[in-house]
Design a protein around this nucleic acid. Structure first.
Lengths: 100, 100, 100, 100
DNA sequence: TAAGCATTGTCACCCC
DNA sequence: GGGGTGACAATGCTTA
């Protein structure tokens, strides 16, 4: 997937390595900055996922069914028009199957 | 899947039912055929999963560690060119970031 | 995760390596047999997955909505009791939210 | 809407719904609070995902290959101890299977 | 020791 | 088509 060819064709970040020290330093620094920003965001996202898991645990402890709450969340997230459209189609298919 | 119950008895599915029998019949039959083929495949897949589980049980009974064997399987599965790809990436990563 | 420690503790398959040739041969052969059986099953499973994808493509070409057909499959797969139970709970939760 | 009969037998959070106003209010409120907290977290996560996308766009604009950077991120993410783990597994695998 | 539970890993689906 | 996300299943742990 990441063959030599594609690396050769990758413009600045890699070619830079063969260039002068000054420019190279700047580009590698840029790459590092990008990578670290992304990794930071990844960490935040992971923390968020853990928070969500905690809420489901809480919620379960309070007697609610986590599975159904997930369905509720999905239900509310859907666009109302699309939702009824899909439900109508589903019903149509099911009724078709009953009489097929 | 959501709110199917409340949809049962809604107009469209029955309106369709009041339309031309021929076309409707054909489509319902097609739908049923598709659905049943998929369900059949699902069953086969499930049977396969059970077979795999059985082998792991056997294997465990023979004194092998199922967890380790799972890793072996994974290792062999991604072996083809992934490994060299990762090594290439390592070169790329090292040459670009170690100097940042 | 699969540290040296856990491998040392893995009974036959690994200890065998330090044992006499005869027994070792047999166990390695067993391991290979297990691994190959599992890999074979994995391949069959993959083939099955592809078959299913093909059917969805066909079905889409015939004018059915693949997404909705997936819902139909899931709907039929569920145990009727569990299904109505969940739907009831979902309805209950939604009605609770409307008035909260 | 939902018959009393279907509510009877459901766990605490739902039985409550058929009880006095006070308790019911509290539980519906709890459910709403849980749901809204989750939805809020979902939004934050979505915002994060957009931030990440933006960085990849920036990065691409700066001449880096987004695909390669993704691989770098993945590589660094699993680096900690996975690598040595895989090497250990390799030893195990080779010593056990090469002679089968 | 069995059984429920929590966690993890794996898998399929969806969106981009 | 590829990456991200969510659901599901298997495993190990903990408790009764």
């Amino acid at each position: 997937m990441i063959g030599v060819k594609s690396i050769v064709g990758t413009p600045i970040a890699t070619r830079v390595h063969a260039q002068g020290e000054g420019v190279e330093e700047i580009n590698a620094g840029h790459l590092r900055a990008f990578v670290e920003r992304i990794e930071r965001l990844h960490e935040e996202r992971k923390a968020l996922a853990e928070d969500i898991s905690e809420i489901y645990a809480e919620l379960k402890g309070a007697g609610f069914d986590p599975k159904v709450v997930r369905e509720v969340i999905k239900y509310r997230a859907k666009d109302p028009d699309k939702r009824s459209e899909e439900e109508t189609l589903l019903e149509l298919y099911l009724s078709a199957l009953r009489q097929a």
